[in-house]
């Protein structure tokens, strides 16, 4: 994870950003969730079959993410309108952010932008202070599941208990 062209690695401060989250123009980003772990789930596109499964899975797994107080943000280069229709079709209630204009700027800042013009299928877990705690990139056609995220959140929360104690 030390390659400057690759996905951002653990220990690095996460670039802050605010992207459109709803058609009425509301923006959000990791800075809105400081004090909580944040899961950034970059994915290539709404509607491609694997992503549908991945984001739908994260909605189904939301109670587990919430046990660690974590916020989950999905990010692709699709527009807010595509995101809205996609979220409705999959029953997704967590924010899907539009990295649409300038296209892929946030994905690029995280080293998660593919030459095809889409985001990589990349997961980045930020700690409560906005530092990268864990990151992982999968092949575009492989749904990485949630186990890596939950392992990272578990480590973050156990470290915290140790520090508090």
């Amino acid at each position: 994870m030390t390659d400057p062209n690759g996905l951002i690695g653990p220990g690095r401060p996460a670039p802050d950003f605010a992207l459109p989250a709803t058609p009425d123009g509301r923006r959000t980003g990791p800075g809105d969730y400081r004090g909580r772990p944040v899961v950034l789930a970059f994915y290539p596109a709404d509607w491609s079959p694997v992503c549908g499964d991945q984001m739908a899975l994260y909605q189904a797994a939301m109670p587990e993410f919430e046990r660690y107080g974590a916020a989950v943000l999905g990010i692709s280069v699709d527009s807010i309108w595509s995101h809205r229709a996609f979220a409705e079709s999959q029953g997704i209630r967590f924010p899907l952010l539009a990295d649409f204009e300038p296209k892929g700027a946030v994905a690029r800042a995280y080293g998660a932008y593919a030459p095809s013009g889409e985001a990589d299928r990349a997961l980045v877990v930020l700690d409560q202070k906005g530092t990268v705690a864990w990151s992982h990139v999968s092949p575009p056609d492989v749904n990485p599941g949630a186990d890596g995220i939950l392992d990272a959140l578990e480590r973050l929360c156990s470290n915290r208990e140790v520090m508090a104690g």
């Binding site: 499964d53 109670p63 749904n143 990485p144 599941g145 949630a146 186990d147 939950l150």
Partner: peptide
């Protein structure tokens, strides 16, 4: 049902 689901999530079930 939830116990089964959570065990699956932790084992890498992705769909």
């Amino acid at each position: 049902v939830r116990r089964d689901f959570v065990g699956g999530i932790r084992s890498g079930v992705n769909g």
